[in-house]
């Protein structure tokens, strides 16, 4: 059997295509000359959105868009998406399948790999083709401490890729492409029912440009206001390390770290965070890191561009005062 081309799973259960899907189309275009074949995008959609999605996916680089038109109540059912992706792989026989490593993608893709009987590599930071023409996947392990290069011996190669590692290509709405409609059975999907959206996230740290992050150096829940004010004044998102979430002082969506959000803002300001490995795993790719800590031996120092030894309350108040004087 001849496995050719690249298949990108376009995540759109929320009603819009996740930008990570476009990033993957961009990367796939770049890899395609070494893999040969065509670039396919696969999506599950309601009838009224099918045309809009295919136009968009072609503009971002897809040659062919395979669309599974389903009933409205099936759009958020992960088992339907699983069925669609399995059908698409059997139909297209791609060499490489790229899926965004969002919580959604990391839930569906492994089921597909298990069902097809092929290898899957999680949360990759890069994918390349080596000198022998093998697809190699690069991923962190051990809470970000080890980087591994992984080859897949079976077909297709299934890879989930961390959102934000590749650029979104600029769309070309003049590009020509083809849309194919396929149908799937809803078999097995009734074992799971998505009842409703419980809570929409108020903050998405992974997309934040500037972050003020607080840790155990904050002495009481009341005191968070001071740092909230600092974040607001400089147009930053307020974030925190794990202990503040464990104490119930901050919501989980604001937690930076291995078990929270992996961020890479332009500027990361860590206040009273010592720098446990699990926190470092969440912020080490920030462009510029400032940290303030009373303890000169805090491990976060070596991950910082600027390390200020001092009292976080004092520093925060003085910065706020200086900003007021500027106005």
């Amino acid at each position: 059997m001849n496995w050719r081309g690249v298949l990108v799973y376009a995540e759109n259960y929320s009603g819009r295509i996740h930008r990570a899907s476009f990033e993957l189309l961009g990367k796939a275009r770049e890899l395609l000359p070494r893999i040969s074949g065509e670039l396919f995008a696969v999506t599950v959609t309601s009838e009224n959105k099918a045309e809009e999605y295919s136009r968009e996916l072609i503009a971002y680089g897809a040659d062919k868009v395979v669309e599974y038109v389903v009933e409205e109540n099936h759009l958020t059912n992960p088992l339907i998406h699983r069925n669609a992706l399995i059908d698409a792989i059997k139909y297209i026989k791609p060499k490489l399948v790229l899926v965004p490593a969002t919580p959604w993608g990391r839930s569906i893709a492994p089921r597909v790999a298990a069902s097809i009987g092929t290898g899957i590599t999680a949360d990759c930071l890069d994918v390349y083709v080596d000198d022998e023409g093998n697809i190699v996947q690069v991923r962190p392990a051990f809470t970000g401490n080890i980087i591994a290069h992984i080859k897949t011996l079976t077909n297709p190669v299934i890879t989930t890729v961390r959102p934000g590692v590749f650029q979104v290509p600029s769309p070309d709405y003049g590009r020509k492409g083809e849309a194919l409609i396929r149908s799937i059975e809803a078999s097995g999907a009734d074992k799971l029912r998505v009842l409703r959206v419980a809570r929409v996230k108020t903050v998405k740290l992974s997309e934040a440009d500037v972050i003020v992050s607080i840790g155990k150096g904050v002495r009481s829940r009341e005191d968070i206001k001071l740092f909230e004010e600092l974040a607001r004044e400089i147009g930053a998102q307020l974030a925190c390390s794990k202990p503040l979430v464990d104490m119930g002082w901050m919501e989980r969506d604001r937690q930076v770290g291995f078990s929270g959000n992996i961020v890479k803002p332009r500027l990361y300001i860590a206040l009273g965070i010592s720098g446990a490995p699990q926190h470092i795993a969440g912020m080490r790719d920030s462009k510029y890191v400032v940290s303030v800590n009373i303890d000169p031996s805090a491990p976060i120092a070596k991950y910082s561009d600027l390390f200020v030894v001092g009292d976080i309350y004092d520093v925060a108040k003085k910065i706020l005062q200086a900003l007021r004087n500027l106005k």
Binding site: G117, T118, G119, I120, T121, V136, P140, A141, G144, N145, I146, I147, A148, H149, I150, K151, T152, L153, T154, R284, D285, V289, V292, P296, A301, K302, Y303, S304, D305, L306, F307, V308, V309, G310, V315, K318, I319, A322
Partner: peptide, 27 residues
Amino acid sequence: SPTRVVRAYYALEKGRETRVVKGEEGV
């Protein structure tokens, strides 16, 4: 196992040249 690790290495800290300052200068 359908996958194989072909290479692994320690993720070295990004070569940040940390500047350490104290108190007022820090602000």
